[in-house]
Design a protein around this nucleic acid. Structure first.
Length: 866
RNA sequence: GCCCUUGUGGCGGAAUUGGUAGACGCGACGGAUUCAAAAUCCGUUUCCUUCACCGGAGUGCCAGUUCGAGUCUGGCCAAGGGCACCA
């Protein structure tokens, strides 16, 4: 036993700021010119934060993961770009300005200063020289320039549109921003309004955005699926019904269907309350007008739609069935037909569509099945209250009878196209992206409205259109609208008095291209195309699943648009996407039902909890939920870093839970990470004092060989785990190596040399995850160079396999015994050894061996006939 | 309603993708050290039976494929998520 030496505890506050300063002054993390750097590039990016005031644990998790990747890739010899910025426009700044009677910009930049400091205390390997905020005019001027580019390229549209109006935030929302009929930010019930709006023509790329998903192999399947569903491509037939009544306002009605095969089951035709025909009919028919009004008032929330009955009104008009001149179908106005999708009119086949069936039953319209399930007799197949939507055989359909619905569909479409009655049509659920927001704290839309010239783009030399600073927030609404002078300008074309557009961009526009700006943050153009080409796409993007549709779809669109006008060359911005889970915490309630903060509660090992100030009061431990202010289960990262240091917080975030899953923040878990930090410090200190660097022979028996093997196994495994973003597994492998190393009691010089080398590897492996501790250990081991600039070691794979292995022996599929064999033994010799083994003989007793399955290196299974 | 994901010890989770289920961590229990504590170190920890060995059961439930299933197939059950008048 070596004599006990008092090792000073590792005090993070004594180490972490020093290393942060060292990395900063050595410019360790500043990316250079990618067009001249010979190393392969690697761009790692975490979704940039909204400067809300303070960082939260979700940020810690997100940025720790990205940081591990950045440091790991740097060590592996990549030229790494790992930047940080601020998604700085948005409503909270305006709300804060109203409350505090200050300016949104002041609030925002103050928050940025606080949060930058917090992030820097985490020891992130970020190139801070590229930092920007989207509210910097230097940034948003390029956004305005690109808007003009897109306008020239025909990628932008301005039109009247029914929009989602958020009455609390007093602004329009895009479809993607309405969740369950409520504003994504305010939670207020969204109203319908008609406004003139700017649109990005995202639908122009609908097919390409869908097809592109196939190429995103390093995206979660789930996100790709969600985007595919959101884009909602459907193939069908668009055709015209002739209206029988000559006095009708229109001669025919255009409909879209994905089920042309069910045409012989048609029962009625239905148009949207907003359909031009309905509008025309309403002029002389008060009943129709009343019905239209009623439909317009109906709510749009999910629950209201759920509760709303299928309702309709017979127009009295009839249309001719296209395949039978004697067959007439009534035309209804129906509340479930949307003007925004397809043609705003449908034909209904109630037998095979539940919604049509509900309607038909209510208004007593015919229900004729035309698809019969293959396993049921055609006679007597009727529809009751449930529509049949499955496959089968066509019936009641004249020439189509006997075909499958697929074949019938093809036949009908062919026939209609041949006769020019209609054509094949692809429809999308995706709508154009409405980007106008009636808010101050956003990027001004660079156009001017002139009474004579109409909409005039702001000339490029006049960019940026800056937000005025002298604005007031004492009233609701848009301060730009009521600013005394800002909007009054002369028309760039004719010089007359004109007004500026007072709407600003949706803040999702800002985040749709920031990753491209990071590649050349100071270029006078939106991007330096050479640098954008060299760095893009982002190799690894990391963020929350909540952006699966919104931000990630917009960014994919924007990249395509930028490519079209020449700012980038890629179509897909993010080659790899990783969606990390949330950080959760237990919730606590006092006996009188009030939420309690974790620091007010003491939880015992058995789960019982009581108040910290009054142990006689029992606390109710509730569910493990996302950290939120309302439930008071928030842990402030600053407190954790102050008490345990950044490395402990980082290590805990990476341990145990797989990164894509939610992680539960626990005091015990943090304590565990803290103990490991101290343990590593003691272990490295001991080895640094007892051993020294020396050559050693890897091929040997005993302790030295075993430790060498454990070291290189760990190195091999951790390397692969980090490559696959399996941080929790990498952590486990590092624990194993630390255990092997502290269990080892090296005696001989050879053993000392192996222990020393093993310790160096251990420190290197810890480097990306606990960078400060690793640097201090590295120094303790006698190194003067910075570990962050040291190359990742190469695993000696020759020792990963030993010359003898223990094979389990199963008898009839159950493990019964083991056998030690040379690892290169072939099937026959293993089989012979197994049969000859006395224990195996005893186990099979008198039974005869029917078969022996030998999987070399894995297992032996002896099948015995009983 | 439709689509997707996930179900493994007291807990978080491993399992080289069809080959020894429970690595690693947390918690718990026992012990050492200490006047005592903190810290640290050593041990035990899926369940049942047993002093112990030997056994038996076991990856949400029920079937199936296979020499062999946590892993593949089918059907249930449960939890979570997404979409939702999209013709």
């Amino acid at each position: 036993m070596s004599t006990t030496v008092e090792v000073a505890r590792y005090v993070p506050a004594d180490h972490e700021p020093i290393w942060q300063a060292t990395w900063s002054s050595a410019k360790c993390f500043e990316a250079g010119d990618p067009t001249t750097d010979p190393r392969p590039k690697y761009y790692v990016l975490e979704m940039f934060p909204y400067p809300s005031g303070r960082i939260h644990m979700g940020h810690v998790r997100n940025y720790t993961m990205g940081d591990v990747i950045a440091r790991f890739k740097m060590a592996q010899g990549f030229h790494v770009l790992h930047p940080m910025g601020w998604d700085a426009f948005g409503m909270p700044a305006e709300n804060a300005a109203m409350e505090k009677k200050s300016h949104p910009g002041t609030w925002t930049y103050e928050n940025i200063a606080v949060m930058r400091k917090q992030l820097q205390s985490m020891g992130l390997a970020i190139d801070w020289s590229r930092e920007f905020a989207t509210c910097d005019p230097d940034y948003y001027q390029h956004e305005q320039a690109m808007f003009l580019d897109f306008l020239d390229a025909g990628l932008i549209d301005r039109r009247d549109s029914k929009v989602n109006w958020d009455p609390v935030d007093q602004t329009v929302l895009a479809n993607e921003q309405v969740i369950d009929g409520k504003g994504w930010r305010s939670g207020a019930a969204v109203e319908q309004r008609t406004l003139t709006q700017w649109f990005f023509k995202i639908t122009r790329f609908a097919d390409d955005l869908l097809a592109g998903l196939e190429t995103l192999e390093r995206w979660p399947e789930k996100v790709r699926l969600m985007q595919a569903n959101w884009i909602g491509r459907s193939e069908g037939l668009q055709f015209r019904f002739h209206v029988c009544q000559e006095t009708a306002p229109v001669s025919h009605i255009e409909v879209y269907t994905t089920r042309p095969d069910t045409l012989y089951g048609a029962s009625f035709c239905a148009i949207s309350p907003d359909h031009p025909l309905a509008v025309a009919l309403a002029r002389d028919n008060p009943d129709i007008e009343a019905f239209r009004k009623k439909c317009a008032q109906r709510g749009t929330s999910a629950s209201e739609i759920e509760a709303a009955d299928k309702e309709g009104l017979d127009t009295g008009l009839e249309v001719l069935h296209p395949l039978d001149p004697d067959w007439r179908l009534p035309v209804y106005i129906a509340n479930f037909v949307l003007m925004e999708y397809g043609t705003g009119a449908i034909f209904a086949c109630p037998a095979h569509d539940q919604r049509d069936l509900d309607f038909a039953r209510k208004y007593d319209l015919p229900v004729t099945p035309v698809v019969c399930p293959s396993d049921r007799p055609e006679e007597g197949f009727t529809i009751d209250t449930e529509a049949y939507t499955g496959d089968g055989v066509m019936v009641n359909s004249q020439t189509l009878n006997g075909l499958t619905p697929d074949a019938a569909r093809a036949a009908i479409i062919d026939m209609f196209e041949k006769n020019k009655w209609g054509e094949r049509k692809v429809n999308f659920r995706l709508r154009d992206w409405g980007i106008s927001r009636q808010r101050y704290w956003g990027c001004p839309i660079p156009v001017i409205h002139c009474g004579d010239c109409g909409v005039v783009p702001v000339p490029r030399q006049d960019l940026p259109v800056r937000l005025p600073d002298d604005v007031s927030f004492d009233r609701p609404g848009n301060p730009l609208e009521r600013h005394p002078s800002w909007k009054h300008v002369s028309c760039p074309k004719c010089g007359q008095d004109a007004t500026r557009e007072t709407d600003t961009f949706d803040t999702f526009v800002d985040s749709s291209w920031y990753f491209a700006r990071f590649t050349s943050p100071n270029d006078p153009r939106p991007t330096n195309p050479d640098h954008a080409k060299a760095w893009l796409p982002v190799d690894q993007y990391i963020g929350g699943i909540e952006h699966a549709i919104l931000h990630l779809l917009y960014a994919r669109f924007f990249t395509r648009a930028m490519a079209e006008v020449g700012h980038v060359e890629v179509k897909e911005p993010f080659a790899g996407l990783f969606t990390q889970g949330m950080v959760n915490h237990e919730t606590y309630k006092s006996p009188d039902g009030k939420w309690l903060a974790p620091e007010e509660v003491v939880v015992a090992g058995d789960g019982a909890a009581h108040l910290r100030d009054d142990p006689s009061v029992t606390v109710r431990v509730g569910g493990v939920e996302k950290m939120s202010k309302s439930k008071r289960n928030v842990i402030d990262p600053t407190h954790i870093i102050a008490r345990y240091g950044a490395d402990t917080a980082r290590w805990f975030m990476l341990s145990d839970s797989p990164p894509e899953r939610d992680v539960q923040w626990t005091e015990a878990g943090v304590e565990g990470a803290w103990r490991f930090v101290q343990r590593i410090w003691r272990l490295v200190d001991k080895i640094a004092r007892e051993t020294r660097i020396a050559d050693h022979n890897p091929q040997q028996d005993g302790l030295a060989g075993a430790l060498y093997k454990a070291t290189h196994t760990a190195l091999y495994n951790v390397t692969h785990d980090l490559e696959g973003l399996s941080f929790n597994r990498a952590v486990a492998r590092i624990y194993e190596l630390a255990n092997s190393l502290s269990d080892a009691k090296p005696q001989t010089p050879e053993e000392h040399a192996v222990a020393r080398a093993s310790c160096e590897t251990l420190v290197t492996l810890i480097g990306p995850m606990m960078p400060h501790l690793a640097e201090s250990c590295w120094k303790l081991l006698g190194h003067d160079e910075i570990l962050a600039q040291t190359a990742w070691p190469q695993a000696d794979e020759s020792v990963l396999k030993s010359d003898h292995i223990v094979l389990p022996i199963q008898i009839n599929g159950k493990k019964r015994h083991e056998i030690n064999v040379p690892s290169d033994a072939d099937k026959d010799s293993i089989e012979a050894m197994v049969i000859a083994d006395p224990r195996v003989q005893a186990l099979i007793g008198g039974g005869a061996i029917a078969k022996i399955i030998v999987v070399p290196g894995r297992i032996v299974n002896v099948v015995v006939k009983s």
